[in-house]
Each structure stands twice: as C-alpha cells, then as structure tokens.
Write a protein that binds this DNA or RNA. Structure first.
Lengths: 386, 386
DNA sequence: GGACTTAGTAAACTGCGTAGCATTATTCAG
DNA sequence: CTGAATAATGCTACGCAGTTTACTAAGTCC
C-alpha cells in the first residue's frame, strides 16, 4: 500500500472523479442528488459538475415539465458517447466485432464468417475489414476508440501472443497486438476466449451476483475461465484454468464421446454430430444417453478439480454445448456432489456465441476506467496514450 | 468502485496516513526524507509528523553525531510498540502463541505441548494459559492487543468454526472465536493452518517476491494454501485448495507410501516412520527410494491440478516433510513437468513449524492495517472496537 | 574563523469546500 | 389572478490546508 500525499489540486481532481462516478450508471441527476451521493456540499458539486460539462464528460438536461413543487432542477448525465471501445472475437469460423460507448451501450456490431483454414495474415485482414465496417457504419474513426480487447482461442501471454498450439492455423506466429497498433494508438489487449466469456457472464450473463466464478467453455474444445474476487485471473504465465492438460482430467477426450458416436449421420461436422447426439438423448435414445453420460462424467473430473481448488460461488456452463444444458446440468451437479466438499451453484450461460466479444468489451471498458477515470481526468476528446 | 467526496479535514487525515505509511518499515527518517517520500512539502510533512508524535504514533530521535555536512536532522520513527497482535497455532501436538508489535517484531513466544487426545475445552484452556503466560512475560494486558488470529487444522467457515472432520478431537463443536471474545475485545479471526502457512511464506519465508503462490503442506496430512494476486484466497465457502478431496488426486493415500513402509522400526509413530524412510532413501536403500518415489508421484497429481488451475509463480513445499525437501524437490519438479503447461518455481519452506503462527501474526497485522491505519486514525492507545 | 550545507521556523499566499443568505422559478391554495 | 410555500440556483464571506519564500539555527569543511 503506497499512499501518496495529496494537495488541493489533487483533492479537486479526486472530487471531480467522485462526481463523475456518481453520475455514471444512474438516471440524469440533479446537483442536489450528486451532492448527497458524493458527500460534498451542494456548491461544490455544482462547480465540479459544471467543469465536467465544460470538459465534455457530462451533459446538461434543461428542466422540462416538473412533477413536484419548487423550482425544477437542471439534470446532468454522464456523456457516455465521449468515447468508445471495441470488443473483438477472433474465432475459427467467425469474426465478431462489437462497438460500445463508455456505459457499455452497444453502438455497432458485425459478424463475419471466417475460413477455418485461413492463416494469420488472412484472418487479421478480415478482422481489419470488419472493424472498418463497424466504425464506418457508426460514423467513427480510429481516433475515437479508447481501448480495444481481442479474444482468441488458446492461452496468450502478457503481450498477447499465443504460446501453445491452437485451432487457429499458424496463429503462434501472429502478433495481433502489434498488428492493431499500426492502426490504433489506444491500449490494445489480447486475451484468451474462455477468460473473456467468464468476464461477460459476470457483466451481462448469469453470474452478475457473484465474485468467485468458474466459467466452463464446453464445446468441441473444453476450457475454463476464472474470476476470483471479482477479478479475472490470468495466472503468472497466463495459463490459469488450463486444467485440461492434466491426464487424470480427460477433457481432451470428453467431447469425443459425443462426436465419435456411431449413430450420428455420416458426413456431419463434429459440432453437428454432437448436437445430434444431444437431441437423440433428449428423445430417449439410450445409447445416446450413455454417450452424454460418459461425456459428463469425464467433464466433471476437471470441473471438480477447479471447484476444489477455488471453491467458487458459481460454475457457469457455457460454450457451444450450452444449448444442451438441459441434459447436462443436473447430471453434472450430481457428479460434482460426488467429488466436492461444497457444490457451487451450476448455471447455464445464455450469452450464446456473443460471450467472448462481450467480455472483450467489458475488459476494454475496465481499461478505460482504470486509466482515464481513476488517476487523471483529461478532457475526453482524443485522449493521448503513451 | 465507490468514490467518496473529500473535504479538507479528510485530506489532512489522508496526508497524516500517508506520512505514517512513509514512516513504517524504514530506518528513522528526517522530515525532508518524509516530504520526499510522500510528495508533500517539508512544512506540511513537519506538522503532520509532529501531530503523529503527539498522538503516540511516532517517536522523535534527537540528532546525534552527524556524519555529513549541514545541520543534523531530527529523526522520526514509527512507534511500533503502540500496539501488539497475537498469532496462535492450535495444533494436535502443540500450541504455539506468538506476540509481536505493529512492525512485526517478535515480542514474545511460547510453545506448549498438547495432548493429542484433548477435547476442545481442554485444548482451549491450554491456549488461554499459554496466552496468559506470553502476555505476562511481556508485561502486557488483554487490552493492549489490537488483533488476534488463530490457526487450526482443517477448513473453517467465515465465523471461524470448523466445518468438516479434523484431526483435533471434537473440534467441530468448538467455537474458538466466541471463546476468545469473552476475554478480548479486539478483532479475532480463525483460519485454516495451510492458508496461514502460505501467508507466512510470503511474509518471512521463501516466497517474498511472488504474488501468486501455492503453499503445499506436506506431512502426514496433505493440504494447500493459495495466495493469488498477493491476497490469501479462502474461496466462497472457505474450502479453496482442498484438492485432496478429489479421488483422482491421491493425497489421502500418498503419505501412506512412507508410513506403511515395512522396513521402518516397529513401534515408531507415523511421523518418525516417514522420517526413517526418507533417511533410508537418502542412504541409498532402494526400497525406500521406491516408496519416496511413489509418494512423490501421488503428490504430484494434486499439485499439478493446483498449478494448472492457478498458474502460480512459486510452489512452496512446506509442512513436516519439508525437512526432506532435498529428496523431494527435484523428482517433484520432474513429475510436474510431465503434467503442467508451465512449471512454476519449486522451493522448500524454511519456516519449520512456526509458519502457521507467523502467518497468523501477519493476518492480524493486516487486520490492523486495514481498519486502523487506512480509514481513520485515532489515538493509538486502547483503540475501541465495535 | 569564514564559507557552505542542511534543518527548522514563521510569515504571506493560493486554492478549495462550507455555510449562509438572497434570488429565481415553479406549484398550490384561495 | 395573487400570494404563500417549496426547492433549485447564485453569490459572498469564511476557515482551513498545503505551498512558497525568506530567514534563522546548527553543524561541517577548508
């Protein structure tokens, strides 16, 4: 804990930030409300919020029809459109770019199918194109962006480079941060997709009430993202949650129980085959039910290891297979009860395939909050990053 | 993030805290040094530190022989003896009570053997007696204590009660917090022993440089304590790190490879038998070497699960078996390399059986830092707790 | 012993939030 | 339509905290 001395100008800055935070995430507020929320006197809140308006952080709303006695008050609101951030999901089959303002309101979004075989250059070119389309549609330029976060499959290191093999062909040689830095001056971060999906669940998904969350990416691959004490945990080397690497945990094989099911239509892609097995099990096919059961049994060992290690409040079942959560949740809960000291809540994700991009947005917004809105408060237009 | 408005008196309080933190953990400082460290002007630092002296938080050291040019400066130092905290280790075979001042300097310490069969009442009475002896020897009364932390075997819940079976007979019915609260008014906390030992390693042990640590308690029982991002993690229900409960992780059986070794002297206690096997292996006994090897192999699976989940910087090998770390570390490292994506550093603890009590001290000091020394700064003598 | 260096002290100065009062804009009662 | 009640706004005086600046005190170095 490194405390630093405060002088008067710093105090004013802090109070200005205090007002800004009191302004965010609420309906337009009167000066009196702001004063109450910040603990400042009304005159102080007044001059501070007027400074915020002058700097472009807030907007005035002149009084309209008043519903109560007394002089109607001016209302002030956070100017969410002062800046925007991008959240990008670079997947094997698709690229998804989302654009939102400082309050997280979606301003633009574009999904584009990707060639699974495409190499890094081709894939990044497609990303560039998608970004351009989103920005153009929203009438924005590169300089309007304050932060960008990108989600990719597989573990990434601090610098955003992929460190082990991933389903994206040739991706170990890609450096998406460096690539984007040629076009954008704002902070750019690349993160593992499971981790971002976990963040999304806490932001807009089924885990908004929890601070300790294990997110399970269940699909043709199996992975996990961890939120501990409200913060995404990467681990010292960025590979936290990769419990699937343990041989005693059979996550690598688990989806095989579904995809290799002999009854599936021939020629179906693996993802379709798995969906077919789930559907068959739902309709009562006993062999399919057995396959699902085996899948869950293998999956549960790894989940139990995560749960025993972290003792989370909630486990979120997400990923491609979360559409079949109705078949999985109850048996998985029973399996966990066998292994764990304390069984956490088990919930199915509802964010579909937008979780990664949403989590990327949230992390980009966090970046803005932590840099711009915490230590120093420059004028919002075109902030300069070093 | 809930920011709150600041006025001038609060600012002064903050600056006073800032000076206090600048004073702590360093050699006695001159006002000029304090000014530099806090970023305040020299007159400001001067009045603030004089106020601290008046309130009993700091002490003056009049200038002695000066070694440099210029007028010799008065020096101020943090008055560590303003308050004290207790760290207590309630073990099966021993009770260890440590007393230290606000800077962590050991002021008193007493170890007392305990009857392994003793019930909770008898054991707590022995704890009381040991506390009294330590306090008496240091010339202190109950009111001089600002925080107490107790370490016990087995998982505990938020309130300090033991929630599953433990080696302490009848301990599930014990409520050590309630017991101590009858005698002490300061904050009291009870925590799992592995977790406290982990904290101690980061404070005074071999993991001072790391923020992500897995502490391994290796002995007749096997357990783990986790420090993630510099903070002890309890998990949502207090059972984080209990990976040994997983059947695929054979921590329950692992020590059996050593204690059940047929070559050990008959009549030896399990702990002695294990030590004997380690010694035999060290001297080249091939059967003993096999036993150690099997122990390590079983141990490694659980460690690998923890490491893959958390991706820590350091794994600390502690507990009773850490005396035989010379035999364990290298093979364990090799085993981990088989399982893990990134092998963390592996270090042997050197804190012997004092780790738990030391960790308890550290947590008690943290408690003081977070309450007294962060938000409000009352006069240090006999602070009142609600 | 004088020049130099650093610490301690006391003044004037600036900036910020608060308190209190007058002013303004609206609703409600008659 | 008018006046009382109500609540927001705007303004001024005030106190307090840290900074700046200047000066004095207490040592060392040559």
């Amino acid at each position: 804990m490194a405390m630093s001395g405060t002088d008067l100008s710093r105090m004013r800055e802090l109070n200005q930030l205090s007002v800004l935070w009191a302004l965010r995430g609420t309906a337009p507020s009167t000066v009196t409300e702001l004063a109450g929320r910040t603990g400042l006197s009304r005159p102080a809140a007044d001059v501070l919020v007027q400074q915020l308006v002058a700097d472009g952080w807030a907007e005035v709303e002149e009084p309209g029809a008043s519903s109560t006695v007394g002089r109607p008050a001016r209302r002030y609101r956070f100017r969410a459109t002062a800046g925007h951030v991008l959240g990008i999901d670079i997947g094997v089959h698709k690229i998804l770019v989302m654009l939102c303002d400082l309050e997280g309101n979606l301003v633009g979004s574009l999904r584009r199918p990707a060639d699974p075989q495409a190499g890094p250059d081709e894939r990044l070119a497609a990303v560039d194109q998608t970004i351009d389309d989103v920005l153009h549609e929203a009438g924005m330029a590169a300089a309007d962006l304050w932060a960008i976060t990108v989600g990719v499959t597989g573990p990434v290191d601090e610098s955003g480079r992929t460190i082990v093999a991933t389903p994206l062909p040739g991706w170990r040689d890609a450096d998406p941060v460096a690539h984007l830095r040629t076009r954008f001056t704002c902070p750019i971060r690349v993160e593992n997709d499971c981790k971002l999906a976990a963040v999304a669940e806490r932001w807009k998904g089924v885990a908004q009430d929890a601070d300790d969350i294990v997110y399970l990416l269940a699909g043709l691959r199996t992975g996990a993202g961890l939120i501990i004490d409200g913060t995404l945990r990467r681990g010292h080397g960025g590979v936290a949650g990769e419990i699937g690497a343990l041989k005693a945990v059979r996550w690598l094989n688990a989806p095989g129980h579904l995809t290799a099911y002999p009854g599936a239509p021939s020629g179906a892609k693996p993802g379709e085959a798995a969906a077919w097995v789930f559907q068959a099990a739902r309709e009562g096919d006993s062999a399919a039910k057995t396959a699902v059961q085996r899948y869950i049994r293998d999956l549960a060992v790894g989940v139990a290891a995560l749960v025993l290690t972290l003792d989370p409040q909630i486990v979120v079942y997400g990923g491609g297979f979360s559409r079949s959560a109705d078949l999985v949740l109850d048996p998985l809960r029973r399996e966990l009860a066998k292994h764990c000291l304390r069984v956490p809540e088990l919930r199915a994700s509802t964010l579909r395939d937008e979780g990664v991009a949403l989590g990327a947005l949230r992390l980009a917004l966090d970046q803005v909050d932590n840099t711009l809105l915490s230590s120093e408060l420059a004028a919002p237009v075109a902030p300069q990053f070093s």
